[in-house]
Structures are given as structure tokens and as C-alpha cells.
Design a protein around this nucleic acid. Sequence first.
DNA 1: ATCGCTGTATTATGGCAGTGAAGCAGTATG
DNA 2: CATACTGCTTCACTGCCATAATACAGCGAT
Lengths: 114, 114
Amino acid sequence: MNNTSKPVYLKLRDIISESILDGEYGEGDMLPSVRAFAVEQGANPLTVAKAYQGFQEDGLVTVKRGVGMFVATGAKTKLRDAQRTDFIKNVWPPVERQMKRLNIKLDELLENEA
Amino acid sequence: MNNTSKPVYLKLRDIISESILDGEYGEGDMLPSVRAFAVEQGANPLTVAKAYQGFQEDGLVTVKRGVGMFVATGAKTKLRDAQRTDFIKNVWPPVERQMKRLNIKLDELLENEA
DNA sequence: ATCGCTGTATTATGGCAGTGAAGCAGTATG
DNA sequence: CATACTGCTTCACTGCCATAATACAGCGAT
């Protein structure tokens, strides 16, 4: 499948991103600890740490060693902008190319839902 | 990048797919030999063979041992249908989900080209 | 039959990514 | 200081990808 073949740490990264974007974790909130999140997701603590690592490199979370990881100020906006840019630059172009090549119209895609 | 991180044999597979879809290799035409295509693409013959292997398993190419590999009858349609199904089932849904989450409208995407 | 092309199988090697187990290091609280 | 939480570092295992050298097997033309 598409989701099955994806590395765990990337899937975790997506879960966290979505949680922040959806407001489940507001700015200043503490994220679940590495171990807690690992148990919750049935993953290895180290794998969770690897997922978290990317966020702190991007300045989306603030790390207080010995305390926890907190959603940085402006993280939601920053994350949204980054994902929008990535989508428009990297995700959409190949999708559009494939649609053209296969002659898939937007109509066919939008019918499939209410 | 997106293209750089992709395994070589998958990239080769894509190149061949596009060539067939675009009619560069018509039905009945012989595909480049493993060794020739390897030189052309700067890859290893074995890697090319691995790329070709998937096509014969899907019945898209006919193998004449000692002669070469030929585009099967109906391959173009078959390939097109398979890719359309895959696109609609596996590619589009996550794209659409992300567009909703990031509030990206189709208008923004379609402006960027003539 | 021989030569030159075709695809295929075998085995081995190097590199890299993902995952995992244990232990180290920092901080708050008592 | 002791405890219990936090993140983080180190070492090792696994599997996949790519490459390589070599050999084998089928076909066509000379």
C-alpha cells in the first residue's frame, strides 16, 4: 500500500503536523513525551524521537531538556505556510503532469464525494 | 528532492511507462535492450532488468528470449487504465485531503500556467 | 557450427535507511 | 540527595537498493 510502505517516523511526523494544524496542540502546549507517544502509537521511543527531531530543527517546537517539548510560538502558521509551499512546489506539479498524461479531468475526482 | 530519492529501477520504470503512453514505443515495437538502455541511462544492466521485470509480470511486454522485449498488444490501454485506477485510488485522496487541510483552492494551482 | 546479439540466474559486496535496546544527561519536585 | 520524569546518545541488527563479475540460455545471420 501507500501508507504501509511509509517509514514509521514519517507517519508519526504527519500525525503531529496534523494535530498542530488542527489545533489539538496549541502554541505553548507540551507535546506528549517521547515514551508516552511511543506507547500510544505502538512505536519505539527512538523512532518517535527521530520524528520529533525534524520539528525542532525547523523551529516548530521548543525543547526544554528534562522537561519536555513545547509547540513554539507561530508554529501553526509557520507549519501551514511550509506545507503550502511544499505542496505547490513539490506535490502538485507531478500530480498535474500525471493528470494531463492520463487525461484525468477534475470532474471525475470531485464527483466521488458529497 | 522527490525524484532524487526514488530508487533507480522505479525511475526507469517510469521512463518506460511514459514512453509507451506517449507513443514513443508503439505496440509491437522492441524496447531497448537491457544493456543498451543501461548505457543510455547510465545505470547497471541488472537494474534495468529489474525495471523491465515488472512489465512482463503485468503482461505489458512480451519477451522473446534471445531477441528482445516487445510492447504487448493492448499495452498502452492497459497501462493507461492501471495508472488511472492507481491515481484515483491511491494518489488523489491524500492530495485532496491535504488541500482541504491547508485550504488550498484549485484556482491557486491552475493560475500558475498558461 | 560459429558469432553476436538478446534476456536471465548466481553470488557477493558496499551503502544506506529504518528500527530497536540500553544507558547517559538534564530538570523539577519532594 | 533521591526519585521520577524529561530528551538524547551510542551500538548493533535488519532489510532494501545498487552494483559487479561471471556464467548460462535462446535466437538469427553468416
